[in-house]
Protein backbone atom coordinates (compact mmCIF):
# COMPACT_ATOMS: atom_id res chain seq x y z
CA UNK A 1 0.00 0.00 0.00
CA UNK A 2 2.79 2.36 0.93
CA UNK A 3 4.48 1.74 -2.40
CA UNK A 4 1.29 2.58 -4.28
CA UNK A 5 0.90 5.81 -2.34
CA UNK A 6 4.52 6.70 -2.98
CA UNK A 7 4.17 6.07 -6.70
CA UNK A 8 0.97 8.12 -6.86
CA UNK A 9 2.76 10.94 -5.04
CA UNK A 10 5.67 10.92 -7.48
CA UNK A 11 3.27 10.83 -10.43
CA UNK A 12 1.54 13.93 -9.05
CA UNK A 13 4.91 15.63 -8.63
CA UNK A 14 5.87 14.84 -12.22
CA UNK A 15 2.46 15.86 -13.57
CA UNK A 16 2.19 19.19 -11.75
CA UNK A 17 4.66 21.23 -13.86
CA UNK A 18 3.17 19.84 -17.07
CA UNK A 19 -0.32 20.68 -15.89
CA UNK A 20 0.49 24.25 -14.87
CA UNK A 21 2.42 25.08 -18.02
CA UNK A 22 -0.25 23.52 -20.23
CA UNK A 23 -3.13 25.27 -18.47
CA UNK A 24 -1.37 28.60 -18.98
CA UNK A 25 -0.74 27.89 -22.63
CA UNK A 26 -4.35 26.76 -23.05
CA UNK A 27 -5.57 30.23 -22.05
CA UNK A 28 -3.04 31.83 -24.41
CA UNK A 29 -4.15 29.65 -27.31
CA UNK A 30 -7.83 30.15 -26.51
CA UNK A 31 -7.19 33.86 -27.05
CA UNK A 32 -5.78 33.00 -30.48
CA UNK A 33 -2.08 33.32 -29.75
CA UNK A 34 0.39 30.47 -30.26
CA UNK A 35 3.35 30.90 -27.90
CA UNK A 36 5.98 28.27 -28.66
CA UNK A 37 8.24 29.78 -26.00
CA UNK A 38 6.88 27.68 -23.12
CA UNK A 39 10.15 25.81 -22.74
CA UNK A 40 12.06 29.10 -22.55
CA UNK A 41 9.70 30.73 -20.05
CA UNK A 42 9.74 27.57 -17.95
CA UNK A 43 13.52 27.40 -17.76
CA UNK A 44 13.63 31.11 -16.87
CA UNK A 45 11.17 30.43 -14.07
CA UNK A 46 13.31 27.53 -12.91
CA UNK A 47 16.51 29.58 -12.76
CA UNK A 48 14.74 32.60 -11.24
CA UNK A 49 13.04 30.47 -8.63
CA UNK A 50 16.18 28.62 -7.69
CA UNK A 51 18.29 31.78 -7.64
CA UNK A 52 15.89 33.80 -5.47
CA UNK A 53 15.42 30.86 -3.10
CA UNK A 54 19.15 30.27 -2.87
CA UNK A 55 20.06 33.90 -2.35
CA UNK A 56 17.34 34.76 0.16
CA UNK A 57 17.07 31.37 1.83
CA UNK A 58 13.30 31.38 1.40
CA UNK A 59 11.66 28.99 -1.07
CA UNK A 60 8.52 31.12 -0.95
CA UNK A 61 10.39 34.13 -2.33
CA UNK A 62 11.77 31.70 -4.89
CA UNK A 63 8.23 30.75 -5.83
CA UNK A 64 7.22 34.37 -6.37
CA UNK A 65 10.39 35.06 -8.32
CA UNK A 66 9.68 32.10 -10.62
CA UNK A 67 6.22 33.43 -11.42
CA UNK A 68 7.52 36.97 -11.95
CA UNK A 69 10.34 35.74 -14.16
CA UNK A 70 8.00 33.77 -16.42
CA UNK A 71 5.56 36.67 -16.69
CA UNK A 72 8.29 39.18 -17.44
CA UNK A 73 9.84 36.96 -20.07
CA UNK A 74 6.50 36.37 -21.77
CA UNK A 75 6.01 40.13 -21.96
CA UNK A 76 8.86 40.15 -24.47
CA UNK A 77 6.87 37.76 -26.64
CA UNK A 78 3.71 39.82 -26.20
CA UNK A 79 5.37 43.05 -27.29
CA UNK A 80 6.84 41.36 -30.35
CA UNK A 81 3.81 39.44 -31.57
CA UNK A 82 1.00 41.72 -30.43
CA UNK A 83 2.43 45.22 -30.79
CA UNK A 84 4.82 44.51 -33.65
CA UNK A 85 2.77 41.72 -35.29
CA UNK A 86 5.76 39.43 -35.78
CA UNK A 87 5.41 35.80 -36.83
CA UNK A 88 4.29 33.92 -33.72
CA UNK A 89 5.99 30.64 -34.55
CA UNK A 90 9.38 32.24 -35.14
CA UNK A 91 9.07 34.57 -32.15
CA UNK A 92 8.10 31.72 -29.85
CA UNK A 93 11.06 29.69 -31.05
CA UNK A 94 13.41 32.58 -30.41
CA UNK A 95 11.93 33.01 -26.94
CA UNK A 96 12.82 29.39 -26.20
CA UNK A 97 16.34 29.73 -27.60
CA UNK A 98 16.93 32.97 -25.71
CA UNK A 99 15.53 31.51 -22.50
CA UNK A 100 17.77 28.45 -22.67
CA UNK A 101 20.83 30.64 -23.21
CA UNK A 102 19.98 33.32 -20.69
CA UNK A 103 19.12 30.79 -17.97
CA UNK A 104 22.39 28.97 -18.57
CA UNK A 105 24.28 32.22 -18.16
CA UNK A 106 22.37 33.35 -15.09
CA UNK A 107 22.73 29.95 -13.48
CA UNK A 108 26.49 29.59 -13.88
CA UNK A 109 27.13 30.21 -10.21
CA UNK A 110 24.17 28.10 -9.05
CA UNK A 111 25.42 24.80 -10.48
CA UNK A 112 26.04 22.30 -7.68
CA UNK A 113 24.68 24.59 -4.96
CA UNK A 114 22.12 23.20 -2.51
CA UNK A 115 18.68 24.61 -3.18
CA UNK A 116 15.63 25.44 -1.11
CA UNK A 117 12.68 23.06 -1.17
CA UNK A 118 9.11 24.12 -0.59
CA UNK A 119 7.83 22.19 2.44
CA UNK A 120 5.01 19.71 1.99
CA UNK A 121 1.69 20.45 3.56
CA UNK A 122 1.39 18.97 7.04
CA UNK A 123 -1.92 19.33 8.83
CA UNK A 124 -1.88 17.60 12.24
CA UNK A 125 -4.48 14.85 12.31
CA UNK A 126 -5.34 14.96 8.62
CA UNK A 127 -1.99 14.25 6.95
CA UNK A 128 -1.45 11.17 9.11
CA UNK A 129 -4.70 9.50 7.99
CA UNK A 130 -3.62 6.23 6.36
CA UNK A 131 -3.42 6.12 2.55
CA UNK A 132 -5.47 9.17 1.60
CA UNK A 133 -3.91 11.46 4.21
CA UNK A 134 -0.68 12.06 2.38
CA UNK A 135 -2.33 12.10 -1.04
CA UNK A 136 -4.87 14.74 -0.09
CA UNK A 137 -3.20 16.71 2.68
CA UNK A 138 0.51 16.02 2.44
CA UNK A 139 1.70 17.29 -0.94
CA UNK A 140 3.74 20.31 -1.96
CA UNK A 141 1.93 23.67 -2.15
CA UNK A 142 2.28 23.96 -5.93
CA UNK A 143 0.26 20.76 -6.34
CA UNK A 144 -2.71 22.46 -4.71
CA UNK A 145 -2.13 25.58 -6.78
CA UNK A 146 -2.19 23.48 -9.95
CA UNK A 147 -5.54 21.91 -9.11
CA UNK A 148 -7.06 25.22 -8.08
CA UNK A 149 -5.69 26.83 -11.22
CA UNK A 150 -7.29 24.21 -13.44
CA UNK A 151 -10.66 24.69 -11.75
CA UNK A 152 -10.32 28.47 -11.92
CA UNK A 153 -9.46 28.46 -15.62
CA UNK A 154 -12.34 26.10 -16.32
CA UNK A 155 -14.72 28.40 -14.48
CA UNK A 156 -13.31 31.56 -16.06
CA UNK A 157 -13.38 30.31 -19.65
CA UNK A 158 -16.81 28.71 -19.61
CA UNK A 159 -18.77 30.41 -16.84
CA UNK A 160 -17.87 34.08 -17.06
CA UNK A 161 -18.56 36.78 -19.59
CA UNK A 162 -14.89 37.71 -19.85
CA UNK A 163 -14.06 34.08 -20.55
CA UNK A 164 -16.60 34.00 -23.36
CA UNK A 165 -15.08 37.18 -24.76
CA UNK A 166 -11.63 35.65 -24.63
CA UNK A 167 -12.78 32.56 -26.50
CA UNK A 168 -14.54 34.66 -29.10
CA UNK A 169 -11.31 36.58 -29.72
CA UNK A 170 -9.54 33.30 -30.31
CA UNK A 171 -12.15 32.23 -32.81
CA UNK A 172 -12.31 35.44 -34.79
CA UNK A 173 -10.26 38.43 -33.80
CA UNK A 174 -11.68 40.64 -36.52
CA UNK A 175 -15.29 40.04 -35.46
CA UNK A 176 -14.35 40.63 -31.85
CA UNK A 177 -12.60 43.84 -32.84
CA UNK A 178 -15.63 44.94 -34.83
CA UNK A 179 -17.74 44.45 -31.71
CA UNK A 180 -15.50 46.89 -29.88
CA UNK A 181 -13.59 44.32 -27.85
CA UNK A 182 -10.03 45.26 -26.95
CA UNK A 183 -8.40 42.30 -28.72
CA UNK A 184 -4.82 43.29 -28.07
CA UNK A 185 -5.41 44.01 -24.37
CA UNK A 186 -7.05 40.61 -23.80
CA UNK A 187 -4.21 38.92 -25.62
CA UNK A 188 -1.55 40.78 -23.64
CA UNK A 189 -3.14 39.62 -20.39
CA UNK A 190 -3.48 36.05 -21.67
CA UNK A 191 0.13 35.84 -22.80
CA UNK A 192 1.40 37.21 -19.49
CA UNK A 193 -0.85 34.80 -17.60
CA UNK A 194 0.59 31.95 -19.67
CA UNK A 195 4.09 33.20 -18.92
CA UNK A 196 3.39 33.36 -15.19
CA UNK A 197 2.10 29.77 -15.33
CA UNK A 198 5.14 28.57 -17.26
CA UNK A 199 7.38 30.35 -14.76
CA UNK A 200 5.54 28.69 -11.87
CA UNK A 201 5.92 25.32 -13.59
CA UNK A 202 9.65 25.95 -13.89
CA UNK A 203 9.74 26.99 -10.24
CA UNK A 204 8.16 23.67 -9.33
CA UNK A 205 11.06 21.89 -11.02
CA UNK A 206 13.78 23.79 -9.17
CA UNK A 207 11.97 24.23 -5.83
CA UNK A 208 10.13 20.92 -5.44
CA UNK A 209 10.91 18.28 -8.05
CA UNK A 210 14.71 18.47 -7.85
CA UNK A 211 15.67 21.40 -5.60
CA UNK A 212 18.82 22.31 -7.46
CA UNK A 213 19.84 24.09 -10.63
CA UNK A 214 20.81 21.98 -13.64
CA UNK A 215 21.18 23.49 -17.10
CA UNK A 216 18.32 22.58 -19.43
CA UNK A 217 16.55 20.97 -16.49
CA UNK A 218 13.16 21.41 -18.16
CA UNK A 219 14.22 18.65 -20.59
CA UNK A 220 11.48 19.31 -23.13
CA UNK A 221 8.63 19.59 -20.63
CA UNK A 222 7.61 22.91 -22.13
CA UNK A 223 7.18 21.26 -25.50
CA UNK A 224 5.26 18.39 -23.99
CA UNK A 225 2.97 20.96 -22.35
CA UNK A 226 2.33 22.43 -25.80
CA UNK A 227 1.48 18.97 -27.09
CA UNK A 228 -0.83 18.45 -24.12
CA UNK A 229 -2.92 21.43 -25.14
CA UNK A 230 -3.46 19.92 -28.58
CA UNK A 231 -4.09 16.50 -27.03
CA UNK A 232 -6.69 18.05 -24.74
CA UNK A 233 -8.37 19.76 -27.69
CA UNK A 234 -8.21 23.01 -25.70
CA UNK A 235 -10.29 21.73 -22.74
CA UNK A 236 -8.91 22.31 -19.22
CA UNK A 237 -10.08 19.04 -17.63
CA UNK A 238 -8.56 17.03 -20.45
CA UNK A 239 -5.29 18.87 -19.85
CA UNK A 240 -5.49 17.64 -16.27
CA UNK A 241 -6.03 14.07 -17.41
CA UNK A 242 -3.29 14.31 -20.03
CA UNK A 243 -0.79 15.79 -17.59
CA UNK A 244 -1.30 12.88 -15.20
CA UNK A 245 -0.98 10.32 -17.99
CA UNK A 246 2.32 11.91 -18.97
CA UNK A 247 3.39 12.18 -15.36
CA UNK A 248 2.77 8.44 -15.08
CA UNK A 249 4.83 7.75 -18.22
CA UNK A 250 7.65 9.92 -16.88
CA UNK A 251 7.66 8.22 -13.48
CA UNK A 252 7.08 4.79 -14.96
CA UNK A 253 10.25 4.96 -17.03
CA UNK A 254 12.24 6.20 -14.01
CA UNK A 255 10.99 3.29 -11.90
CA UNK A 256 11.70 0.87 -14.72
CA UNK A 257 15.27 2.18 -14.86
CA UNK A 258 15.63 1.82 -11.10
CA UNK A 259 14.35 -1.76 -11.19
CA UNK A 260 17.06 -2.57 -13.72
CA UNK A 261 14.76 -3.81 -16.48
CA UNK A 262 17.03 -5.20 -19.22
CA UNK A 263 16.24 -2.42 -21.64
CA UNK A 264 18.71 0.40 -22.36
CA UNK A 265 18.02 3.34 -20.04
CA UNK A 266 18.19 5.71 -23.02
CA UNK A 267 15.28 3.89 -24.60
CA UNK A 268 13.23 4.28 -21.45
CA UNK A 269 14.20 7.95 -21.23
CA UNK A 270 12.90 8.51 -24.73
CA UNK A 271 9.48 7.10 -23.84
CA UNK A 272 7.86 10.43 -22.83
CA UNK A 273 8.89 11.98 -26.13
CA UNK A 274 7.72 9.00 -28.16
CA UNK A 275 4.48 8.90 -26.18
CA UNK A 276 3.95 12.56 -27.08
CA UNK A 277 4.25 11.75 -30.77
CA UNK A 278 1.91 8.77 -30.52
CA UNK A 279 -0.69 10.77 -28.61
CA UNK A 280 -0.51 13.63 -31.11
CA UNK A 281 -1.02 11.20 -33.97
CA UNK A 282 -4.01 9.59 -32.29
CA UNK A 283 -5.68 12.89 -31.54
CA UNK A 284 -4.91 14.64 -34.86
CA UNK A 285 -5.95 11.87 -37.21
CA UNK A 286 -9.56 12.90 -36.85
CA UNK A 287 -9.21 15.99 -38.98
CA UNK A 288 -12.73 17.30 -38.47
CA UNK A 289 -12.59 17.04 -34.71
CA UNK A 290 -9.28 18.92 -34.58
CA UNK A 291 -10.55 21.61 -36.91
CA UNK A 292 -13.67 22.05 -34.82
CA UNK A 293 -11.77 22.50 -31.57
CA UNK A 294 -8.81 24.58 -32.70
CA UNK A 295 -9.31 28.30 -32.01
CA UNK A 296 -9.89 29.54 -35.54
CA UNK A 297 -7.51 32.50 -35.47
CA UNK A 298 -4.74 30.63 -33.63
CA UNK A 299 -1.32 31.89 -34.64
CA UNK A 300 -2.50 34.63 -36.97
CA UNK A 301 -1.16 38.10 -36.29
CA UNK A 302 -3.78 40.77 -35.75
CA UNK A 303 -3.32 44.40 -36.67
CA UNK A 304 -6.36 46.50 -35.88
CA UNK A 305 -7.44 48.82 -38.64
CA UNK A 306 -9.33 51.84 -37.48
Amino acid sequence: MDITVNILLTVATAATPLLIAAIGELVVERSGVLNLGVEGMMIMGAVGGFGAGYLTGSPWIGLLAAIAMGALFSLLFAIMTLSLATNQVATGLSLTLLGLGLSGMMGTNFVGQPGQRLPNLDIPGLTSIPVVGRLLFGQDPIFYISIALTAAVMWFLFKTRKGLTLRSIGDSHSSAHALGIQVIRYRYLSVVFGGACAGLAGGHLSLVYTPQWVENMTAGRGWIALALVVFASWRPWRVLAGAYIFGAVWIGQLHAQAFGIPVPSQMLSSLPYLATIVVLVLISRNKRLTMMNTPASLGQPFVPDR
Partner: peptide, 19 residues
Protein backbone atom coordinates in the same frame (compact mmCIF):
# COMPACT_ATOMS: atom_id res chain seq x y z
CA UNK B 1 32.00 34.61 -18.54
CA UNK B 2 29.89 31.52 -19.32
CA UNK B 3 30.03 30.54 -22.99
CA UNK B 4 26.21 30.53 -22.82
CA UNK B 5 26.66 34.19 -23.69
CA UNK B 6 26.81 32.94 -27.30
CA UNK B 7 23.26 31.56 -27.03
CA UNK B 8 22.08 34.85 -25.55
CA UNK B 9 23.58 36.79 -28.45
CA UNK B 10 21.98 34.41 -30.93
CA UNK B 11 18.57 34.66 -29.28
CA UNK B 12 18.70 38.46 -29.10
CA UNK B 13 19.74 38.68 -32.73
CA UNK B 14 16.74 36.63 -33.85
CA UNK B 15 14.44 38.73 -31.68
CA UNK B 16 15.65 41.97 -33.16
CA UNK B 17 15.55 40.63 -36.71
CA UNK B 18 11.92 39.58 -36.32
CA UNK B 19 11.07 42.93 -34.77
Amino acid sequence: ISDKVARVFQGMLLFFVLG
